[in-house]
């Protein structure tokens, strides 16, 4: 690769493309800020101290995993259960990484590690839209665009999360901040449920998770995921078979 620099934390970037990346992410600033504000406020409202909530926001940088594991952490669930839950919620990022690796695969390891860490839902979708069919993968234009988008997203998220953390104790509990976190997750969930297999799997996971809500060490969630994923995959297999017979 002619462009790749071997030192530094970031690859070489085209400045104009960096600005374009910021510009394309800017309209997402408001939804991201709402989501960050809610996440920050909910963490503190649920009982995390301000320093712990700040640490979590700055390090984890994954709103859905933070909100999903928050009830487990507050209940003092065993850490392996907490981590397994986060891992499952984050598995979608493995698909993102596999799909966008072509633009990064020749960079030095520390640059790949950082680029991957910043490759969240929005940045991935917009990057694929722009460069999914490009003739060349991995150049300063693409890296500039990628880091422009994701730097903006990172800043919008951190600033709003920190604001939420500082405001969290001021918001009265009756306002239903706990509910707000479930509504925010709902907005992440709904676009994921596309097609019959995903729908069947999520319905099963919902029913099992309610039935298993008092399982020991908060293991109900993982049981529900196992049931839901099995049903989704079986449905997908069955559909392929039906399509094969029809063809």
């Amino acid at each position: 690769m002619p462009h790749a620099a071997t030192t530094g934390l970031f690859p070489p970037m085209d400045r104009g493309m960096f600005r374009d990346g910021v510009r394309v992410m800017a309209p997402m600033g408001l939804p991201v800020a709402v989501w960050g504000l809610v996440t920050g406020a909910v963490m503190v409202n649920a009982g995390l101290s301000v320093p712990i909530a700040l640490l979590m926001s700055v390090m984890v940088y994954a709103g859905s995993a933070q909100l999903a594991t928050l009830p487990l952490l507050v209940a003092g669930a065993p850490l392996p259960v907490v981590w397994a839950t986060s891992l499952v919620v984050n598995l979608r990022f493995v698909i993102f990484a596999a799909a966008s690796r072509r633009a990064f695969v020749h960079l030095p390891w520390q640059q790949r590690l950082i680029a991957g860490y910043l490759n969240g839902d929005l940045g991935f979708a917009l990057f694929s839209q722009k460069f999914g069919d490009a003739d060349e993968h991995g150049n300063p234009a693409q890296w500039g665009y990628f880091f422009g988008m994701n730097t903006f997203n990172w800043l919008a998220w951190q600033v709003s999360s920190i604001a939420g953390i500082l405001l969290g104790n001021v918001v009265p509990e009756e306002w239903g901040l706990g509910l707000a976190s479930y509504l925010a997750l709902l907005a992440v969930l709904i676009p994921m449920v596309r097609g019959m297999p995903a729908l069947a799997g999520t319905v099963v996971a919902a029913v099992v998770s309610v039935a298993a809500h008092d399982f020991p060490v908060r293991s109900g969630l993982l049981v529900a995921v196992a049931a839901g994923v099995s049903v989704a995959m079986a449905t997908e297999k069955w559909r392929h078979r039906v399509q094969a017979v029809a063809a």
Binding site: S64, L67, A68, P71, T85, V88, V89, N90, L91, R92, V94, I95, G178, S181, Y182, L185, L186, V188, L189, M192, V193, P197, A198, G201, T202, V204, A205, A206, V207, V208, S209, V210, H213, G220, L221, A224, V225, G228, V229, A232, M233
Partner: peptide, 17 residues
């Protein structure tokens, strides 16, 4: 598996909540 698991996990947080 990786496509379906996150949706199942999120619904398994939301539904009991």
């Amino acid at each position: 598996l990786m496509r379906f698991a996150p949706a199942c996990a999120l619904v398994a947080v939301i539904a009991p909540g």
